[in-house]
Design a protein around this nucleic acid. Sequence first.
DNA 1: CTGTTAGCGCCTTCAA
DNA 2: TTGAAGGCGCTAACAG
Lengths: 341, 341
Amino acid sequence: MKERRRLADHKSKVTLSEVARLANVSEITVSRIMRNKGPISEVTRQRVMAVVNKLGYVPNRIAGSLASARSNIIGVAIPSLSNIVFPEVLRGIHAGLKGTDFQPVVGVTDYDLDAEEALIRSLMAWKPAAMILAGSDHTGSAQQILVQSGIRIAELMDIDVEPIDIAVGLSHRSAGYDSGRHLIERGYRRFGYIGHNWRDDRRAKLRYDGLCQALSEAGLQVVAHSMVEGASSTLAGRAMTANLLANDPTVDVAVYSNDDMAIGGVFHCLSAGIAIRERLAIFGFNGLELGDALPMVLSTMRSNRFLIGKIAVEKIMENLAHRSGPCVVDTGYEIIAGETA
Amino acid sequence: MKERRRLADHKSKVTLSEVARLANVSEITVSRIMRNKGPISEVTRQRVMAVVNKLGYVPNRIAGSLASARSNIIGVAIPSLSNIVFPEVLRGIHAGLKGTDFQPVVGVTDYDLDAEEALIRSLMAWKPAAMILAGSDHTGSAQQILVQSGIRIAELMDIDVEPIDIAVGLSHRSAGYDSGRHLIERGYRRFGYIGHNWRDDRRAKLRYDGLCQALSEAGLQVVAHSMVEGASSTLAGRAMTANLLANDPTVDVAVYSNDDMAIGGVFHCLSAGIAIRERLAIFGFNGLELGDALPMVLSTMRSNRFLIGKIAVEKIMENLAHRSGPCVVDTGYEIIAGETA
DNA sequence: CTGTTAGCGCCTTCAA
DNA sequence: TTGAAGGCGCTAACAG
């Protein structure tokens, strides 16, 4: 049987004990050297490393994790890779993890809570050192698994609800509110709203609610809406802008669910010869780099996506072992005055 | 000691043997049920599943992988998350993996081959079932590790060189060549080139080479260049377009290293009042959705990033166990005539 | 500074 | 259809 085994994996597997044997030391010594842990004499280290290099030994983390009951995996569950904000959050996560030897394992939920639950189960099976999730909406079971796991949990983007452990993000409600205040101050009165699917993008809805509250406090309201069914996109923003103006030509400012949509609005105006700001002001959300490169700098609100990912990791690393009671980090937002509103 | 141990992990760990004990079966029976493998009577299954659910048992994949000497991990190494093409490739990978229980573990190399080597080592330590890499440039050691691992290796984006195992992508050289042919046919003669860092983005260089060859065959050449130091961006494209026209006002068409840059060119022309196509034609590469939403549809070349990721996974899954000799999949490209050239 | 002893939680193989 | 025995490759907890 042994023979059969050996035949199957033609690559002679080099293991710790193999290295130990050839270096005339015990396994644990090699183990310590590979992990830079414990006191090791320089001579032994060099002798062992020589063997390691000769054999091309790569420690098996699976075995290591099993033995030490901890893995260097960070589970990450995001709703989508299509929406540019999530790759940016991922960038932040990778940036925060740089230099550590933690590996993010990323899964995508497609904005589906049941899919998220399945993903969380699947990630948990790797006994991750921590989990990073987008949003704070989870199924009951998912919530329970997360709470009971005892590991650090960071819920990103949103700080409008109490987190399981760590929340990093901004208050979308108050971002929406402040957008409204800003635009009212600039003299706009006839508000249009151009949005996309609220069921998936709950944060867009929160911003809308905040906007409405600001308007309402000023005795105003959103007088026209144009919503697309699916995800946000520049093309959708373009079409919906045409739609909005057709439905209500009196609108003097359009607030968009995000920059993708708003940039579509800019493009519509540019190609239809509509004077941006004079005839229709445009206001987005996110502060994408692209907005800055447009013929007219987009008026929008900066949400710090990269920072959100990075800080989440930093918070987790502050104390990987224990939760320290709910902790909320507000990464804030910032109005970019721009030239379109 | 046992006592201390138990105190440390306050969460009573539910393991296979725990479930087995409570269900009055052996561990292996539970194991078989969890993996849907081997013949199990329906009665036993239900009894066991009841316990599994009551305890919230989640199999430990680390232990499972160690015992079975295989993991369901797919290692992925990409150069960057900033360049939109890689998240799109990732989307394809996730799409291809959907429904399987493989988990991608993604690392970022920042276009650094040594960083890639380190990443490959680190991913290999998880004994992945396969590896997906961007590009076919690797350090010698990395190349060796990959070859010797014996697992399926997919090298994406580029099919201009012989792969280790599987290559999925397009010939950037011939894409560049065909761009040149296309633009010559449309009557352009004074070519400008606007690009970014070739050291990092070797594929952009290949396209440039192809372009030059097409021009050369027609007795033409690139008469002016504007290159930025860093990564591609719309802002850089904008600046470089102004630069190019200042340096050589006779240029009648600008070929860009990619769509990000080209869109910057469109924006420059729009805000400087330069007639696109009449005065300066603009041609990009990638076929980003955004190009389609511009006031004038961007003339460019579609590279099928999503497809590249998806097909790579499909190829890998065709036969996870064995390499079948170098295999190249050409996902092709397609000229989008557009309105800017 | 180095080694010994015992597992980690699961799966493979063989036997019933 | 089920089970028993043994081990995957590594590391924790001690002891020298």
